[in-house]
Design a protein around this nucleic acid. Sequence first.
DNA 1: TAAGTGTATTATATCACTTAGTACACTTAA
DNA 2: TTAAGTGTACTAAGTGATATAATACACTTA
Lengths: 135, 135
Amino acid sequence: MNEQQVGALRFHIDFSQPLYEQILDQVRSSIAKGEIGLGEKMPSVRELAQELRMNPNTVMRAYMELERDGLTEKRRGQGTFVTSSAERVKTFRTDLAARYIESFMAQMESLGMTWEDIEDYVRRRSRAEEGGPTS
Amino acid sequence: MNEQQVGALRFHIDFSQPLYEQILDQVRSSIAKGEIGLGEKMPSVRELAQELRMNPNTVMRAYMELERDGLTEKRRGQGTFVTSSAERVKTFRTDLAARYIESFMAQMESLGMTWEDIEDYVRRRSRAEEGGPTS
DNA sequence: TAAGTGTATTATATCACTTAGTACACTTAA
DNA sequence: TTAAGTGTACTAAGTGATATAATACACTTA
């Protein structure tokens, strides 16, 4: 629902977050998971803006961040391309994951939850999903 | 650093988030961890606003949310009090933790990280903290 | 009665986000 | 050379969330 395919990229945009952040997160995800390959061409700023019915400036803001992440490279007159460095993608993925984990652990600690509590929850969670949604 | 004690409550306010959200999160945390006891009196809207050097309206917005959470009760002319129901606090704590976990798991899945990856990271993390910060 | 509560209202200011429109430099292909 | 498609830069404007300011009212307690 509300899914949208643009080239090798999939998007589902809503109003829960800034638009440029959603583009950013979802392209990061596609690159991290290899859904769009190394060196592959991204949609142009204008094309993606048209497909997602947004302003090109909004898309460009996301693209600027992607380049700062080292996940994309821009070539004037040609377009934006996923980096060719598998190493760079791997590093980015593990670094971002680490940041997510640290932030999450701080949240849980603020509720007085221990790592054991979390493990218990996840165990019960996966047990409840047996034969559950086939995603 | 930037810590502030107001009655039984501790605050550390910065500019990374809306002020009312920081109050909300930190009071929730204090109640969930029992740092402020069941039925205990909270600082008044005006007092907390003065201590934190904010507008009373900003504090009131946080207090409204706390009551919607069922964590506090307001008594006209008397003040705001932590709920007397341990059950309510417990339910809130586990529900919020569940929401944090689900959101976190979705984040990690978007990076193609599995539960095993997370366990590995946390194990290495706690090993690295041996004899580390005594909090 | 006075002081301290929560509550409500109106006005104002600032900032992040988004859109709109325009323009320029560069690359590629006709 | 030309045209079309790239990324980039800039100005202008609108919207909504956030925060402050000032004031007022109803209620409770001492």
